[in-house]
């Protein structure tokens, strides 16, 4: 009786590895964008009608404002005087038309937002925008 040659029992994994690598590259590319300036713990107020933002001016400064009044820029905590000095230095670099984005929690009192806006005005900047989450 003739013997059959040994069957190879290996699973073909080449294509699976290709797909897995593509998935990893996708997640790496999409997750790294803007992570450094956006404070994910802030729950933005929602808007329904405003147009969605496609591109953000690379010179814009994002100020994260928590409901308790805590301020941070690029995750670096700041007091109001520190923020003023920072904005003054930004104005000297990029001009007084530098866009300021205030990312505040929906439950933040306007009192806190007003304090930040006063600091922005004192720093000689005027293009202020409140960031909201767009409801689909």
């Amino acid at each position: 009786m003739k013997h059959r040659p040994d069957d190879t029992l290996e699973t073909p994994i080449t294509s699976m590895i290709d797909i897995v690598f593509q998935l990893i590259i996708f997640f790496v590319v999409t997750s790294a964008i803007d992570k450094d300036v956006v404070d994910e713990s802030i729950k933005l107020a929602s808007a329904q009608n405003a147009p969605a933002v496609e591109t953000v001016d690379p010179h814009s400064v994002t100020i994260n404002l928590h409901s308790d009044g805590e301020i941070n820029v690029a995750m670096m905590p700041m007091s109001l005087p520190q923020l003023r000095n920072f904005l003054i230095s930004m104005r000297s670099q990029s001009g007084n038309a530098t866009p300021i984005l205030i990312r505040c929690d929906g439950t933040t009192r306007y009192r806190k937002i007003d304090q930040v806006m006063q600091v922005v005005t004192e720093a000689g900047l005027y293009r202020v925008r409140i960031v909201a989450m767009l409801e689909e």
Partner: peptide
């Protein structure tokens, strides 16, 4: 998706 609402100072 974010929206930026302008506040004129």
């Amino acid at each position: 998706t974010e929206a930026h609402l302008a506040v004129n100072l």
